[in-house]
Design a protein around this nucleic acid. Sequence first.
DNA 1: CTGAAAGCGCTAACAC
DNA 2: GTGTTAGCGCTTTCAG
Lengths: 333, 333
Amino acid sequence: MAVSMHDVARVAGVSQRTVSNVVNNYEFVRPETRQRVLDAMAALGYVPNAAARSLRSARTGLIALVVPDFRARIFADLAGPVVREAEALGYTVLIELTGSDREHELTVLTGGRNQLTDGAIMMALSLRPEDGQRRRVDYPIVLVGDQVLEGQVHHVGIPNKDASAAVVRHLVSAGRRRLMLLGHDPHGGQTARMRARGFLDGLAEEGLTAHEELLVGAGWTREGGQSAIEEHLDAGRPMPDAIFAMNDSLALGALRALHARGIRVPQEVALVGFDDVEEARYATPSLTSVSPDVEALAANAVAMLHEQITGKPSGREQHIMVDFRLKVRESSQ
Amino acid sequence: MAVSMHDVARVAGVSQRTVSNVVNNYEFVRPETRQRVLDAMAALGYVPNAAARSLRSARTGLIALVVPDFRARIFADLAGPVVREAEALGYTVLIELTGSDREHELTVLTGGRNQLTDGAIMMALSLRPEDGQRRRVDYPIVLVGDQVLEGQVHHVGIPNKDASAAVVRHLVSAGRRRLMLLGHDPHGGQTARMRARGFLDGLAEEGLTAHEELLVGAGWTREGGQSAIEEHLDAGRPMPDAIFAMNDSLALGALRALHARGIRVPQEVALVGFDDVEEARYATPSLTSVSPDVEALAANAVAMLHEQITGKPSGREQHIMVDFRLKVRESSQ
DNA sequence: CTGAAAGCGCTAACAC
DNA sequence: GTGTTAGCGCTTTCAG
């Protein structure tokens, strides 16, 4: 059996209460008493028991990070900052992988399997807006990304619409006029819809209109991007002078297809992606991409969750949009 | 306050003990009693309290996955399989990020900050062999990757040596003779040393010897690979007809440098990497790479940890090497 | 098969 | 400032 507070108290010649006070940095302990307790703790190798503490305090100090999969770069990028921010507030992060399964995501929304975590940060891909109603109200949750639920659900989002419009402005100001949207999916998730909206709004603001044949559907993967471009070219459809791929995977796939067909980027076609994955910097040519502020995403999500957990009245907005930057690289200039 | 077993017992008209039996799938409960309890649980929305359970049973059901950083692809690749395997055995996975900090890795080795986890799977990069002595014996740990500590530490490894020798055989059988080792670091970590060893042994087996000037040091990053190749070429050192880069980042950096200098891959120089990151498949030309069996790595690590936690006598080896495959792609043929 | 009851280690209300 | 003490919700020993 591990050493308990009781053992420490006995060795230090104080009561358990005093040991607890020291462990929890309670202010009013005489310095010499504190030192005696600290010495006893060190001598015995005392480590507080998390289970007992959370049983008593009804808080576990654990928060869940619920993501579809770590293979997709954006989720892996999120993990580091979330862990760091959480640690700073005294939480430990626990991973939960949903595989984008709707049932699994609903389970989290309705309170999780057991009372293991104080709350969750979730990147949900399969929830529907009306699922918000099913949320268990006393389980703190912050949604990250795009899926906005109905009801009182805190949320930190990526500025898909604004950033997409910014991409259009960038391309048009560089003299491009025939813009292709790659990865179009009007009945897909909110991410796809918002990025398309930003693209179309951006065109409209510039006095341009979208060419139907340049709104190209494709799975949001490299294979998707590559084959969509190949098919487009092989079918002899109108040639764009710029391509906005809805994420970097699509863009890198497109780049490969263009390269294989001998079409020069950016001379003949400019190319812009979204997410700014690491590879974007190292592609040939390096890829212009939208870089959402992931650190801010993590920091806000953890802070909002912490506020819910501690029940602090929030001065913060319930919905936050983080900032973005357009990293202009070789592929678009 | 949440519903407790006591509440369920009262509603079902049984004792708390019986509820516990039902929750834990204890066999000898009369079916009708079981059903009554189940109904009561459903009616009250009962969820077992993890803290109380682990306080009582001295097991938390949590295991820590300790990695340097999720940005490095290999760690992200490991997370999914580990979580799945752990789940199958009834564990939940908790992330701990060390940032390759030796102190942090030592903390884990010596038992972790608190008794929050039943054990840990660690990918240690900064520990030294002698640190094995400092291990707290009653805290189950499985090391993953290469760093083997002295003493009784379970370990699942990647076959760096064998795989590197296989790369050499592949290149030689394709007619290459002047092989460069990129990323050489004879005083570096065990990963670098074992891959170099495999490379040199492989050459020796083929009756070839390594040219000193073709053992090229470089940081294991794209920048490292790129600048090392650029310098090598600019200095007019001997030109290899094949390059074995010790990881894919190095290889992709090298590819960029070769491309920039107009050297054709694989016609003039063949190129092989290690790790088989996703980008390897999508590089131009696609990159031949060693693909360690990450699923097996995860499965073995979790199984070994589980055995230590439950104190089961292990029929399994204490040190396991997982399998690998050489994915031959355009860059080497 | 089921009931009664003893803690697991800790926090915090209550005393002094 | 410090000691006493009552549980938090659960598992498990001992009876029946």
